[in-house]
Design a protein around this nucleic acid. Sequence first.
DNA 1: AAATTATTCAACCGCGCAAGC
DNA 2: TGCTTGCGCGGTTGAATAATT
Length: 244
Amino acid sequence: MGRSPCCEKAHTNKGAWTKEEDERLISYIKVHGEGCWRSLPKAAGLLRCGKSCRLRWINYLRPDLKRGNFTEEEDELIIKLHSLLGNKWSIIAGRLPGRTDNEIKNYWNTHIKRKLLSRGLDPQTHRPLNRAAPITTSYRPENARGPDTVPRETTDSIEEGHSSGTSMDEDHSSEINLELSISLPYASAKPPCTSPKVACAPSQAICLCYDLGLRRGEACSCHSIKSSQVISYFRPLEEIKFGL
DNA sequence: AAATTATTCAACCGCGCAAGC
DNA sequence: TGCTTGCGCGGTTGAATAATT
């Protein structure tokens, strides 16, 4: 048994994309928009798997991508977000306009890990390397994968900031915007939002409690702020800190 | 200049989730 | 209610490039 493959492997190209393939994909999406990735390759005349097309578009061809080196500010933001969220690259990418989850994941593995190690910090736990990793009974989303998906609990990272004096252990909870929302990168023809946690208004943010594991019927104490353009969801730091 | 090693990053893979039937 | 299908995510791989010997 087992899952059927996402595409017919025998008749698909693999490996690096050619310029011509890129052009075909771009021109198709320009006309028809994103979505229906499974049927896109055939419609666009590409001998590629739909997943491969999606990845190529999202990570490389999208017009709103910011290419080039990461800035120092981006570095620090990634570090802070990782300390709060763990390897939730897509959520972290949502806070860095023009950056993709794949790009951030690669950058983390090649640069930031080393940077943290040079600061004497464990890249997974963000704790000093000479301290034993604590045993924690942290809340984990029920759908979290694998033992290392979320290395430590959110509240813990904030408390740690108060309790020791290394550079990364400063109280960054006051520096970082913990607004638990993401906004849509640009207007798209996506179907209406079906998240049970949010009222579906245009140009709105999404309450990340949903994404972080709370599901239908579970309590969410996030507050919302409606500004002229967006609805933002946030959870007051006190509530995070004391596990309310 | 050639060989070897290290680094980077685009792309692939497998799995989980949720919508649709 | 259970099954199928498609999408999206995170982990991993491997080719290309850079640095070192």
